[in-house]
Design a protein around this nucleic acid. Sequence first.
RNA 1: GGGCGAAUAGCUCAGCUGGUUCAGAGCGCCUGCCUUACACGCAGGAAGUCGGGGGUUCGAAUCCCUCUUCGCCCACCA
Length: 795
Amino acid sequence: MAMAQPSFSLPPQYDPHAVERALYQRWQDAGLFTAHADSPKEPYVIVIPPPNVTAVLHMGHGLNDVIQDVLIRFERMRGRETLWLPGTDHAGIATQNVVEKLLAQEGKTRFDLGREAFVERVKRFVAETGAVILEQLKVIGCSCDWTRTRYTFSPELSRAVREVFVRLWDEGLIYRGHRVIHWCPRCLTSLSDEEAEFRETNGTLYYIHYPLADGSGQVTVATTRPETMLGDTAIVVHPDDPRGRGFIGKQVRVPIAKVLVPILADESVDREFGTGFVKVTPAHDASDFEIGLRHRLAMPIIMTEDGKMGDQDKGEGRGGDARTDGEARVPAELAGLDRFVARKKIVKMLEAQGLLAKTETHRHSVRYCYRCDSVVEPRLSDQWFVKMAALAGPALAAYRRGEVRFVPERWRATFENWMTGIRDWNISRQLWWGHRVPVFTCTKCKHQWADREDPARCPKCGGKVEQDPDVLDTWFSSWLWPFSTMGWPDQTADLQHFYPGHTLVTAPEILFFWVARMIMAGIHFMGRVPFATVYLTGTVRDTKHRKMSKSLGNGIDPLDVVKEFGADALRWTTVANTALGQDLTLDPDDLETTFAPGRNFANKLWNIGRFILAQLPERVTPVEQLDFATLTLADQWILARTQHAIEQVTHALAEFRLDDGARLAYQLAWGDLADWYVEAVKPRLTMEAGSPGAAARRASAATGEPGSIDAAHAVLAHCFDVALRLLHPVVPFITEELWQKLPGRKAGELLAGAPWPAVHAKLERLDGSAGFGRVQEAISAIRSIRAEYKVAPKV
RNA sequence: GGGCGAAUAGCUCAGCUGGUUCAGAGCGCCUGCCUUACACGCAGGAAGUCGGGGGUUCGAAUCCCUCUUCGCCCACCA
């Protein structure tokens, strides 16, 4: 008796490339990603952390954006009006650097072009190559609302930036600060505290003798930056330090600079460190600056903006010993030398003069520019600052009222710490690429104000007006992102409907840069925290636990992975391997091991689908309409398992435990449905055709029970359908492709827009006796014995 | 100097409020299978004193203390 051979029209191997692009297009054409501000549905909003316009997709984005997409797709299926707002950041320093490098290849600098032409050049560059990354997000399946793509430097968002600046100005929260800031001698701009990152560095501690002016001896100081001695205007010692006794009040001669400076008492000196005597360079060290203020010291700048030794003594002194403000602090032999070259030379000079006491290796934290890795040079300068205490207070209060929470929770302490000890924010950058500081000064009456529009002349005296040449910190536009993207300051429908949003997914590295500031801006300008939950991801690392980075060359290109394994494989590995907030370790040298599991799983689904689809008739009875009395133990078991999985997966995803959700759904599809149920119903399904009586009821080989083909079809269709829905947020392509093929599909119906499965309580209760569990145990035991005694499977 | 995270099978990691889904998954390894959905597969199997040491408890991978080793963040480490 020949069995009917099921004819499978589908190939046995799933080919992601054959379907991904078209499916994405279908989703988009169906308008599934587009949010509607007039929707009666409850909104669910995520704003994307805008990647730099010059960025190309790396695994960090991959992790971040896939997590966001899983959440968005989950909530979309749960019936929320989802808005995932995409966009890019103009990335002031980063982008300017990129274009400057391009210019350098032509042998030019930005100064050769001039400001206007340079900005035009950057604009052109951004227009040509910018937003590549947004296209890449589509390749990995991100369901962003592309009708709402935003850019931090667009006219609309620039208007919001300007509005915010003017408001803060009018509130007195922006001021001109004269102090030592972080200066990047390569980028030629100031940096905020956050942009000057600490890095442990092996340095040298130089002990240098400073001879007393009266020739009665010398004091010795320790410094890691001997070149700054040219800007010394005092030596300080702790007032209670016995070593200082007899020295305080005397003068020393600063070697090489050949100026006289006083020895003063200051309580800030740490008596445990060095010699107890500290050289004070007020213009080139933040704490020395404080000392300088206390003692009204002169503050000569002894370096040029690009980090070369140069006599730029602007006579910043406010009293003090005016005689020490030498015109020639920088001797000719040092002038023009790079600071590190000068350091070596100065050390040699000191050695020659017998003034170098000793050197020690010294490991300490040095600040580096976060964009170009240059050693940051502290430098006295005038910059625009935002008073942060006024913003942090209300934000912290809202946070403590529980209006925003962090997952994982452990970030609480870090956040609160920073917020309570917050420092004013240097927002001016000496760059050309960015929002121009909207501060205007009358050349005639010196009236200074911030304006929403570019004024033609001074409103007070009608005099000529000059705009501040600086631009704003990139993050000064980023911190407005949750509402500037929705049309603020206009009260748009989007703003009213979609603000505040719900979840922010981002890397902990930008907790201070961005997240904290968004919370402050949200509270200050909108009166509401911009999101209820901040999900802080882990970091993507290689197997040596090094952060993946371009410079280390240990990165994985997500697009390579898509090419080789498919987008779902990339997403699967990413999601299934990242427990909430834990780092994601991937092996760049073994993509096969890293991404094959996802590819294999997609293929498994494909084949479960092939099998089931080959069995199912045109019309399948909905499970709810089955006569439960006719269900076999296996039927009951898989139905109950499926309901249980719905509960578990839903709970896991709602709690941001995406890895659990993914694994639970995987277990349902592969472990339960494929491994057990499909095998259990095979005998029922593949029996002889043409005998309606026998076909209707026949013993199931697994349980010895009767079972109808009808029921088997219904159960298979139901459980597979549920599994596809549960898996869709994680692996959207393969699930959509298969779901499309299931019987009863209406035209235009898409899984991406289908409802999330609900638990049928009736079905869940079916397996009360745990009957099939015992069958499974028995079968496993028999298989063990068979394997042990090498019994052929068919015997 | 302060804070945080990690240490579980050869590898990468789960294990959420302590106890019948607590010793798990994937990969790798061993044995047997091209069983008419899938060898990107199926069945079976070996493999961990849950970093060390104390403690709380009737009971701890799970809670407390401590130590060790990695890693991260913060701090005016001249």
